[in-house]
Amino acid sequence: MSAEQTRQKNRNVVLYGIGTVVFMLLFVFFVLRPMYYLICEWTGITGSQFEASETKNLAIDENRAVKVQFLAMNNATMPWQFQPEQSQLTVKPGEVKQVYFYAKNNTTNDMVAQAVPSLSPFEATNYFIKTECFCFNSQPLAAGESVRMGLVFQIDPDLPAWVKTLSLTYTLFDITDSAGATAASFNRLALHNL
């Protein structure tokens, strides 16, 4: 093998090597990350569902009652008052129910919040149909302002039989600094991009 041939072959290895590196970098951003969300969405893991569904005309299962617990909590830096108006509800699968959460901005600043839902057990996520939810959008509140935030949901009667209690937790985050712009939209966009 001549020196020139070796040189050419080495050059090829460098090119393939750099190609692999670039490929893997893109792979992280555009394959691994969306795959994570795809799997979460598909299985319901993490119990976070940000997208609205259509109300379905489902047969109401009169013989079954599912307990739904509503929990509201603040991320540590979030000063708002935030609580569910009702901490628990017994629901028949198929029924359309509406509940409200109360939030008040007690600070002297205008702020924007984002509620992040998480349903437990996560296996129920894809059977818990949210047609309207304050978590679909960020929630601005002027200083001292308060709001009743609605959630309309129904439970798919196909919900696995072993699920008898559902806990829906909303964590309220302060997104004033990044609101409206990059933060939320960047990710949402990617979520839709799947």
Binding site: T20, V21, V22, M24, L25, F27, V28, F29, L32, R33, F50, N75, Q114, V116, T171, F173, D174, I175, D177, S178, A181, T182, A183, A184, F186, N187, R188, L191
Partner: peptide, 27 residues
């Protein structure tokens, strides 16, 4: 190693450019 580079780049963007790869607040 590019995966590690990607992860720390995401961190850098979260810290300085307002993205939320790893922050629940932004999705």
């Amino acid at each position: 190693m590019p995966v590690l580079a990607g992860v720390v780049t995401m961190m850098l963007m979260d810290i300085h450019f307002g993205t939320s790869f790893f922050s629940a607040a932004g999705g």
